[in-house]
Nucleic acid binder design. Sequence first.
DNA 1: TCTCTGTTTAAACAATCGTTTAAAACATCT
DNA 2: AGATGTTTTAAACGATTGTTTAAACAGAGA
Lengths: 197, 197
Amino acid sequence: MTAAEETDIKIRILQAAKKLFALQGFEGTTIRQICEEAGANVALVSYHFGGKENLFGALFEMFFPNDQLAAVDPDMEPIEGVKLVIREVTKFRQSDPQLISIIQQEIILNTPRIQKIREHVMPMWGLLRKWIAKGREQGVFSYRSLDSVFMSVTGILLFHRNQDYWKVLQEEEEPGIEAMIEDMTDFILQGLHYKGN
Amino acid sequence: MTAAEETDIKIRILQAAKKLFALQGFEGTTIRQICEEAGANVALVSYHFGGKENLFGALFEMFFPNDQLAAVDPDMEPIEGVKLVIREVTKFRQSDPQLISIIQQEIILNTPRIQKIREHVMPMWGLLRKWIAKGREQGVFSYRSLDSVFMSVTGILLFHRNQDYWKVLQEEEEPGIEAMIEDMTDFILQGLHYKGN
DNA sequence: TCTCTGTTTAAACAATCGTTTAAAACATCT
DNA sequence: AGATGTTTTAAACGATTGTTTAAACAGAGA
């Protein structure tokens, strides 16, 4: 069996798991549902991944864009750093809303599985936080509580335009991603009392 | 049996359900767990509430602070309205973090149960949105996309200081609720380009 | 004291959960 | 073709799910 075909069923299972975990949650999704969606036998999850819990971990090894962060320069100017994070998170949320939904769920429930997520996303949050702090030191940002503004920024980044929940209230047509980034950046930089531009 | 004792076990079940739904999610919580926590027999959930699904609905009838919204004047000045929502939501999040956790979960998963939540919270979001819109008309707020800023504000309000997830990054001691409201209000009003004060 | 009504209990219900098993099917070699 | 090692399958495993059942219980009115 070729390498492509070997991983084929594994990838189909991972994609099905991602879709269903996002829609129904981890506990709310059964292995049988996943395998039906993937067109696979129920035993294959245990055989290939070693159980439902490990399947979850494999999701992030497969789909989380780790390389994006590696190219980032931590000594970037704070304003540029913040802009970069807003852009990258928004792009990620657009490109893989299912994975975002899973991350949101795990954060809120604070499950044991959160550890897998932490490993991937905490480095970026750490950078963002450092840039926000350094910006204040340099006088380009201004605020009282670092914790508070950091929470506000992450709240916006993670839970902006969430699912279809707000559809009933929305009136404007769905904007392009560039307009979205621009609007969020403006809101956040204003919140940070950004002096510039 | 007296009225107080009659509802005693029902209330204990509701409290146990709220606690466990918040910690483990709806699907992740079993009726047996709830009844063990409440010191009740497993059959009582079906007997008193008519099943797990209805128990969820009863949660909001019991614990959601509906009266708070009724006293609000929709024709309030936009700036005062926004400030009021920030204060009330933050107070609610402090007073009943478990119910907030449940609401967050249902929003993200977009479950059928979301309807029960909508009934209670949408009126307030509608008011907030109207105030933000009216503020722009009056020239006291300034922004490009109403949808975008509205999503940003709700993102902050609903997911600010979420659980213990961010604990590893926090450095400051937990602030009082008044300082918290002040910081969030400042961030949001800046984001709305508030011209005043 | 006896009956009636509503509440609580232990036990059991069918259904489904995640996982395992043993055999079948497959692919890859000499 | 035949042997070998891996992958997939159908079936079954024990455990647990939400719900129901019938009996036991408690309190009020006669």
